[in-house]
Design a binder for these strands. Structure first.
Lengths: 243, 243
DNA sequence: CGTGAGCTTGACTTGTTTCAACCAACGTGG
DNA sequence: CCACGTTGGTTGAAACAAGTCAAGCTCACG
């Protein structure tokens, strides 16, 4: 994970904010707002090792976690243990904007890698929102984006084949990492375990392994020590059935 | 559809509002708010026949449709025509609260049966929201509920069997109709075509038919002319794998 | 050095889809 | 009022995608 420093730097400089595409939010709409936030709210920074839970479904939180470094994932669980990852959380991502209005978190969040995150106090954020009402438009963008992501996931789970789903997951991460300038010539950090890919796309570990092997064999992607290179982007797009 | 009158009455009296469970919203948190809304906003009422689109994905709307009578459904479509119904919209349901902040609707909405709905002007609603800031808490409840529904759907599509999914769909509709007092001793109107159930749960028409036949054969449900009776609620719960 | 987590591979099973034929109900136009 | 096409539902056989089971491998780590 050579570009850890790059990740920290991006976030701390607010670069991941200015670079973020329309609809993506990083709790900082531009450098100034981000600096204001950090100054006004003095969020507490926390670090948690890989695979450890950041918070559990049903828990009450007075603060909203925002991912700063590396990856986390939010997941729901059925009573019998079946799990679905709702979203892979990248640096700059707010864990759940519902936490601005409700203290109970509906899903659990866990670290994919070692993760650094900041807790923004809800009350502070709310008063800030009242003082700077223009932030509402940013907020609504995050809201809408969260909902769109959820709808898109449902569509993929309900109507796409395993190949399509996995290709789409890769393309989605690639797009989001590109926006954060975390992709150098088609290569990106890819710390996800097969187990997590399976949970994210409603598949089994075994099948994920088979599909990814097939992608590699076909020369579409390449993976080595927790990083992935897209060798044939049009090919991957074709498999994913997009655009 | 014998209780059409009941449905109209419920909505027009605001009964579906007072009866709605925590987290459910009907654009009217209690009778007074609803009357205020109707008086202040003079929404235009529209009627549309079954199977006809109310609006299409990508369209720009200056008004937010709210279902008044009968059922509608929101759906997303893949470029090759595969479809997923995101949500079955019942009387009192707002089509998409994202429309409060964004004019482009991300999915299409179509009438399941003949449907009556009202269009609430976005600008009017926004000024109302500014004048009555306490409405924000109602709004956030709808928001959060919409997101939870979407996450729940993803979980079901990703991790539940066909039997479970269909049982859960039935239970979900039963719960929501109960809250609107549209269920008399376990019997409810059920205008959904197999085709729509399939699109809602990511299955094929043929398989839906087989699963429903099996439910009937096992004496769990009973269906006749567009209405469904749950004969064995605990049994259905067991199949659905809930609680 | 042993242990456990993660990945791969092959054989087999199963749930769901696909294909196809058929039936019932309904509305429309002759 | 009948003939007809259309839409929606049912059923069975065959095909297929993904899951399950099982074994073996690598690698990191205490």
């Amino acid at each position: 994970m050579e570009n850890a420093e790059a990740q920290v730097q991006k976030f701390d400089e607010g670069a991941s904010c200015t670079a973020c595409p329309a609809g993506e939010f990083n709790l900082c709409a531009g450098r100034t707002a981000k600096d204001q936030l950090a100054a006004l709210l003095r969020p507490s920074v926390q670090t948690i090792p890989a695979r450890r839970p950041i918070c559990r479904a049903g828990e009450a939180l007075d603060a909203i976690p925002v991912i700063c470094k590396w990856w986390a994932a939010s997941a729901m669980t059925l009573p019998d243990g079946r799990r679905l990852i709702l979203s892979i959380l990248l640096p700059g991502d707010i864990v759940s904007s519902a936490l601005l209005f409700e203290s109970e978190i509906r899903f659990s969040v866990e670290a994919v890698t070692d993760v650094e995150y900041r807790m923004f106090d809800r009350a502070d954020l709310q008063t800030l929102l009242v003082k700077r009402p223009h932030l509402f438009s940013d907020l609504s963008k995050i809201w809408i984006d969260e909902k769109n992501q959820a709808d898109q996931l449902a569509l993929e789970l309900g109507r796409c084949s395993a190949d399509e789903r996995i290709a789409r997951l890769v393309l989605n991460l690639w797009k989001r990492l590109s926006a954060r300038e975390l992709v150098q010539n088609q290569a990106m950090e890819f710390p996800l375990r097969h187990h997590q890919i399976a949970d994210a796309m409603g598949l089994t570990v075994v099948h994920v392994s088979k599909v990814l092997s097939e992608f590699k064999r076909a020369g579409v992607i390449q993976m080595d020590n927790r990083s992935m290179t897209i060798l044939d982007l049009p090919g991957l797009r074709r498999i994913a059935n997009v655009r």
